[in-house]
Amino acid sequence: MAISVEIVHSGRALVLKVVADSLETDNVAGFRAAITPMLDKSAHFIIDLSAVEFMDSTGLGSMLSCLRIVKSKGGTLKLCNLTPEVKQLFEMVMMDRVFDIYTTPEEALAS
């Protein structure tokens, strides 16, 4: 299962889009490898999850890992465009309180 991360907008914050229909045990290593170098390119990030229809606890762990890296450098990381399935997972484990979640990238940029 191929996974990649694309830069869709770069300004004050870098907007990254996860290009894969799932973020899970089977492709999490690929996700980490793709996103880690990008976390050096800016301090502020918005991750667009509109393509991700399924995420498991390992995928969630990788998002938390990104959040920790960005915060340790004094930056911010916001999520947007969560599919209902992924939103459901975030709410289930109360990660909606840990992450700043927005409906669209524009809304996240404006906040």
Binding site: D56, S57, T58, L60, G61, S62, L64, S65, L67, R68, L89, M92, V93, M94, M95, V98, F99
Partner: peptide
Amino acid sequence: PVLDGTKEGGFGISIIKK
């Protein structure tokens, strides 16, 4: 599981339960 975002793993069993 730790739900305050400080731990990256350990959610699996609790997710199954929920």
